[in-house]
Amino acid sequence: MKKLIGTIIIGLSLIGGNATAADKLNVVCSAEQPWCDLMAKGFEKQTGIDVSMVRKSTGESLAQIRAEAANPKIDIWWGGTGDPHLIAASEDLTQASGIDTSDLLGWAVNMSTISEGKTVGIYAGALGVAYNRELLAEKGLKAPSCWKDLADVSYAKEIQVANPNSSGTAYTELATFVQLFGEDEAMSLLAEIGKNVNQYTKSGSAPSKAAARGETTISIGFMHDMVTLASSGFPLEIVAPCEGTGYEVGAVSIIKGAKNLEAAKKWVEYSLNADVQSRSVEVESYQVPSNSKATVAPESPDLASIKLIDYDFATYGSTETRERLLKRWDRDVKNVAKN
């Protein structure tokens, strides 16, 4: 017993004593782990600032930043879909970085403009369709090339997509449909497609993983995730829908009340640097970088050849539009599809 207590005390002392270094930065990273590691190591090397980084999904990061608002422990939120970054900006959880955005592409500057400089775009990823070519051949189906093809009866119970109530990816899809076809037509098209959907998953990246393993034939999701799966060897083919498609913008924000503001600003600067952005391919991240001077990986979906819609982040990122569309989706798509 005494030994036990002794061990506990020694252990607690190991945990309790963490000395504070002079220059440090606390980062929460919502991109893929290897990319997060690459960024943190590169930044430490270049600036000498000690980076403490933890990876959490976008939703979890936002929930934590909200909960910690009274006494923030995080300085920088890097990576992850733009919508939650915009929500954080509108809830006044983040602060303007005052960074120069002149080298950045239009969609990245756009993020900064909508949020009054509180968040900046660092990469973009287009929405697309993927299919498992082995399964498709086995079932003798033809490959889809447009959004409307997905409503074809031959795909009955072969499509998997996330539920927009839980997944940002699926919400981007919903908003893309509304922007492409108008609200009413979008809902009826989604309801038609819904008849072919075998499962509305909770997580946005789950459908493509299921397609990769042959659990479903077709998936809807972000193309760069699909590229990662395909390049690791799964039989996935990626389709950029002919009607055009929406996209997400990954973003970086400085948390309001950040304790290491100067270091945080340096991080934003670093993450927008062309050379730094060009390195993402080293860790198999195939998003399109926001700096116009950064090199784009050959495997990345070529945004120039994809018909990208003029995605209206201001309207479709707002809480009112979001709640209205989701309510309608529940009523007109989710509940109709089953019958």
Binding site: I15, N18, N26, V27, E32, Q33, V51, S52, M53, V54, R55, K56, S57, K73, S203, S205, S208, K209, A212, D225, T228, L229, S232
Partner: peptide
Amino acid sequence: SAEHNMATSFIVGRVENG
């Protein structure tokens, strides 16, 4: 947190990433 990361959160991150 960064200093005290746990195995499961590491695993979940990897699973999420495929």
